[in-house]
């Protein structure tokens, strides 16, 4: 596969994942603001996904809509680069998402809620069409990497933004009703509220919440789940190239996966949570860099002597 093509595969899904996260955080922010107009947490979460703060009047979220639309447009630009490599169904789905978003992004009287929901729905459809119509070959694995590196990074960033200070079980016991709403908001922003309830019931505590978003192996929104997928795809690509899976990307991914697999929530809570998730986020960056240096932007000199 051409390195440029791998690059585009990666970014199509990474940008869509980003659009989906931003859209969901904006929706959650709006809902939280209805209960609590100051909504400091919503603003922190917005900052964690790189979104501008939202003003109070409906017109003031136009820049956010433009931001989300920008991610969709960037995903489509990348898909356009590789449209002969992806399935027609994927292209058509992404293109119609783009056309809808492009028109709605600048309508001042448009409803931000339905705009964001249409983006989330459109990205879900794209992922579904991708699973159903694209060969699960090398390109698909780059897409997986783009998607899950973005997801692990975003979930870690949100935890980091929400719990900047060490949290203890004693503090959690004194939680106010307002904080409860915020925790639910955080879970919703990660699309993890319903899975959480099925695992732990609606009894939300920070410790469980952190364990769920960080270490749960089955919740598709957890950092652990993403790290598992990242390592799987890196190993699969190495296998396809007839390499042993012991290169830099696989080593970084293996280290992250092991930390999340074998880490326990008690240890993490005893230490400094924000530092722990910041380290997970940095490891995702390292994996990204190693991936690009190995397959995409390697120096010609090393390739000629290979």
């Amino acid at each position: 596969m051409l390195s440029r093509v791998a690059d585009s595969f990666y970014w199509v899904r990474r940008y869509l994942e980003r659009a989906e996260h931003s859209a969901r955080v904006i929706l959650v922010h709006q809902r939280l603001t209805l209960d609590d107009p100051t909504n400091a947490v919503g603003r922190r979460l917005l900052a964690a996904v790189g979104e501008a703060p939202i003003g109070s009047s409906p017109r003031l979220e136009l820049p956010n809509r433009a931001g989300v639309a920008g991610c969709v447009a960037a995903a489509r630009d990348n898909a356009r680069q590789i449209r002969e490599q992806i399935s027609s169904e994927m292209w058509e789905q992404l293109n119609s998402l783009y056309l809808g978003v492009r028109d709605a992004a600048h309508q001042e009287d448009g409803d931000a809620g339905s705009f964001m929901r249409s983006v989330i729905e459109g990205t879900h459809l794209f992922h579904g069409v991708t699973e159903a119509t694209l060969t699960h070959g090398e390109g698909w694995h780059y897409m997986q990497l783009g998607r899950y590196i973005e997801r692990a990074t975003t979930t870690a960033s949100m935890l980091e933004a929400y719990f900047p200070e060490p949290t203890t079980a004693e503090a959690a016991a004194k939680a106010s009703i307002g904080e409860y709403a915020e925790w639910v908001g955080l879970l919703r922003a990660c699309a993890a509220f319903e899975p959480y309830c099925r695992t732990y019931t609606a009894d939300v505590t920070p410790e469980r919440l952190i364990e769920f978003l960080l270490l749960n192996a089955e919740c598709p929104r957890s950092v652990r789940f993403a790290a598992d997928r990242i390592e799987d795809s890196l190993r699969a690509i190495a296998r396809m190239h007839g390499r042993e899976a012991n290169g830099r990307p696989e080593r970084f991914a293996g280290r992250l996966r092991a930390a999340l697999n074998f880490g326990t929530i008690d240890e993490i809570m005893e230490g400094h949570l924000a530092r722990y998730v910041a380290s997970a986020r940095k490891q995702c960056d390292q994996i990204h860099m190693a991936l690009f240096q190995t397959y995409i932007s390697y120096p010609i000199e090393t390739a000629l002597t290979r």
């Binding site: 051409l2 390195s3 440029r4 791998a6 690509i237 190239h241 995409i296 010609i300 390739a303 290979r306």
Partner: peptide
């Protein structure tokens, strides 16, 4: 391919792929 995917070394044209040249 685009021009940036190709390179010439010793009068041979190569494309840059994830497996090397």
């Amino acid at each position: 391919v685009e021009g940036r995917d190709l390179l010439v070394h010793d009068n041979i044209v190569y494309m840059r792929t994830t497996r090397g040249l």
